[in-house]
Simulated assay, not measured.
Amino acid sequence: MPTTLKEFTPREHDRIIEMAWEDRTPFEALLFQFNLREKDVIKIMRNTLKPSSFKRWRKRVNSGVSQKHLKKRNPDITRFKCSRQTAISGNRISKR
């Protein structure tokens, strides 16, 4: 059974929101890292974001632009990190 929102630390909760906002991070990554299915992520986003922000996020996730679903993703994309993005350390992007 997936973890509930109450069991996450504030840092983990923030990371879940951040990963959900990122277009290149698929829901499968959230399932792997936090044991959260797509519907659980949607519940967290609905309870955390303002209604207008949630609607904007859902519209973007459901659009053809989003890469949130591995099955819909272009098979040429084999990673979720941008090629121009620098190394990530402790969930923070390193400064150049």
Rank of each mutant, 00 (worst) to 15 (best):
N62I: 02
M19R: 11
A29P: 01
R79T: 15
E28L: 05
R37W: 15
F32C: 04
S66K: 00
L30S: 01
S53Q: 14
G64S: 07
V41W: 01
H13S: 13
S53V: 09
E22G: 06
L5W: 07
S83E: 08
K59Y: 09
S63D: 05
K95V: 08
I88S: 03
R96P: 15
E12F: 02
P26I: 02
D14N: 15
V41M: 00
F34G: 05
I77N: 04
K68D: 03
L70E: 07
R56I: 09
F54A: 00
E18R: 12
L5A: 07
S53C: 15
D23Y: 02
L49S: 03
R37H: 15
L5E: 13
K6R: 15
T48M: 00
E22T: 13
Q85M: 12
S89P: 00
E18S: 14
T9D: 01
K39S: 14
R73F: 02
D14Y: 11
K71S: 12
I16G: 00
F80G: 11
F34H: 06
I88Q: 06
R37V: 10
T25V: 11
K6S: 14
R24I: 08
S83T: 09
N91D: 14
K39N: 13
I17H: 08
R11N: 10
R15S: 10
I44N: 05
I93S: 05
F27Y: 07
N91W: 11
N62K: 14
D14L: 14
T4G: 13
L70M: 14
A20N: 00
N91R: 10
W57A: 06
T3Y: 10
R84T: 05
S66W: 01
L30A: 01
M19E: 14
R96T: 09
R58C: 07
M19H: 10
T25N: 08
S52R: 13
I88D: 00
T78D: 08
E12Y: 01
D40I: 11
R79A: 10
T78P: 00
E22I: 12
D40H: 09
C82V: 06
E22R: 13
R15T: 11
T78E: 09
S52D: 15
R58E: 13
E18A: 10
Q33L: 12
F32L: 05
K50T: 08
V41D: 00
S52G: 06
N47S: 12
H69W: 15
K72N: 05
G90R: 01
I88H: 03
D23A: 03
F34I: 10
I93L: 05
E18F: 15
N35F: 04
F80H: 12
E38I: 10
R60Y: 07
P51F: 02
L36Y: 01
C82N: 14
W21M: 13
V41C: 06
T86D: 09
S53T: 14
S94E: 14
G64M: 02
A29D: 11
P51R: 07
Q85F: 11
P75T: 03
R73T: 06
H13I: 10
L36P: 01
K95W: 09
I17Y: 05
V65S: 09
H69S: 10
T86E: 09
S53G: 09
R24H: 12
H69R: 12
F54D: 01
K68A: 06
F80C: 06
H69G: 00
S63E: 05
F32A: 08
S94Y: 09
T48L: 00
S89Q: 06
R37I: 11
R15A: 11
